[in-house]
Design a binder for these strands. Structure first.
Length: 290
DNA sequence: GTTTAACCCTGCACGC
DNA sequence: TGCGTGCAGGGTTAAA
């Protein structure tokens, strides 16, 4: 079975972007009637930057959502008074559209009810995710957001720039690809998939790549991320990541290495191997990646 | 500067 | 069968 047990969400750039697009279509223009921060203790953990439930709710109630943006793995919901609701999914967070009639799923921590009907629920068993409201002009003061690097989908993400950044660092590729301050959006799944697509080993030094290898890595990053979005993200098992409407993504079937330990490489039939890289399980093909 | 490990948390797999 | 233990993950932080 997949090593990603326990219903991991593993929410990375493609999953966040799918939810962002769903939100853009569905909640922009809606006005918030009220916010229910659920009574369980972990709900406070989710809104950990706010001292009290009421303080969080009051900043959202009555506001209209005007725009939905994304920075790395963070979703930003802009409000009509200039505030921003920031959402991070951690590894098991979900935003789900619901209605009053629908029963509350376990680990539902926050329910945002709309004037127009329906609601938006934040569900997160492991509470590594969080939500907070901040003034739009103070977004830059939020440390975690401020240091987030460019992501592979941005227009300004060029091969030349990427090449220079790689050369400037002397780090193994896998941890570097997962470093949100270097490039944002990639986590454990997609960094492995990108490295396989580029034919590069996890432990290649960033400043040792030929220009051809840099190009392969650059292209792999964009293609893997765009493909995963097209398939609406990776859902590894029943409890894992789902979109705004509770529907799983289809990219798991497309994964080339992640979760495939011992299975034949789809390209060369060599069994996929794993090892621990900075505390994360990494999957790679010893034949195709060098 | 880079790398490692610990922390937060829950639910599952595993072994006794 | 039932329980305890270990592990998985993202991101930050501290220490090596």
């Amino acid at each position: 079975m997949s090593p990603a047990r326990g219903g991991e969400g593993l929410v990375e750039l493609p999953e966040v972007e799918v939810v962002r697009r769903d939100l853009e279509k569905d909640v922009v223009g809606r006005r918030i009637r009220g916010v229910d921060v659920r009574p369980q203790r972990n709900a406070m953990r989710v809104i950990r930057r706010h001292a009290r439930r009421k303080e969080f709710s009051d900043r959202l109630s009555g506001r209209k959502i005007t725009r939905v943006d994304r920075k790395g793995k963070y979703v930003l919901l802009f409000l009509d008074d200039g505030d921003v609701l920031v959402v991070h999914f951690g590894m098991s967070g979900q935003l789900i559209r619901g209605t009053k009639r629908q029963a509350m799923a376990p680990h539902t921590h926050v329910v945002i009810e709309f004037v127009q009907g329906g609601d938006l629920r934040f569900v997160d068993p492991r509470t590594f995710g969080e939500m907070f409201v901040t003034a739009g002009d103070e977004l830059g003061k939020v440390k975690e957001l401020d240091h987030i690097a460019i992501d592979p989908l941005e227009d300004t993400f060029t091969w030349q720039q990427f090449s220079a950044e790689l050369a400037r660092r002397a780090s193994k590729l896998k941890p570097l690809l997962m470093d949100q301050k270097f490039i944002s959006g990639l986590g454990n799944i997609y960094s492995d998939e990108v490295l396989f697509a580029a034919g590069l080993r996890w432990d290649r030094m960033s400043d040792s790549l030929s220009s051809q290898e840099v190009r392969r890595l650059y292209r792999a990053m964009r293609e893997v991320v765009q493909d995963a979005i097209r398939y609406r993200g990776t859902t590894l098992d029943d409890e894992a990541y789902v979109d705004l409407y509770g529907k799983p993504g289809e990219y798991a079937a497309e994964l080339k290495v992640y979760g495939r330990k011992g299975l034949p490489c789809r390209r060369c039939r060599t069994p996929i191997e794993t090892l621990k890289v900075s505390g994360r399980t990494s999957f790679f093909c010893p034949q195709c990646q060098s």
